[in-house]
């Protein structure tokens, strides 16, 4: 009997790894998008100005 290359468990593990990978990718995209919005709106400039005043 030949050894099967993939087992159902391997598929499940692949699914799990893919899920984690996509979740991390989504997180990177979200943080990038958020940073772009904050920089464009000048949120950080306002924060720096506040700190300088204090």
């Amino acid at each position: 009997m030949s050894i099967r290359a993939t087992h159902e468990i391997h598929e499940r593990r692949f699914g799990r790894n893919l899920g984690v990978g996509l979740a991390l990718l989504a997180f990177v995209v979200i943080v990038f998008g958020l940073t772009v919005v904050k920089v464009t709106r000048g949120d950080f400039d306002a924060m720096m100005a506040n700190e300088e005043q204090n």
């Binding site: 468990i9 499940r12 593990r13 699914g15 799990r16 893919l18 984690v20």
Partner: peptide
């Protein structure tokens, strides 16, 4: 290997 290993 566990047969009931968790998926995502």
């Amino acid at each position: 290997i566990r047969e009931d290993e968790a998926g995502f």
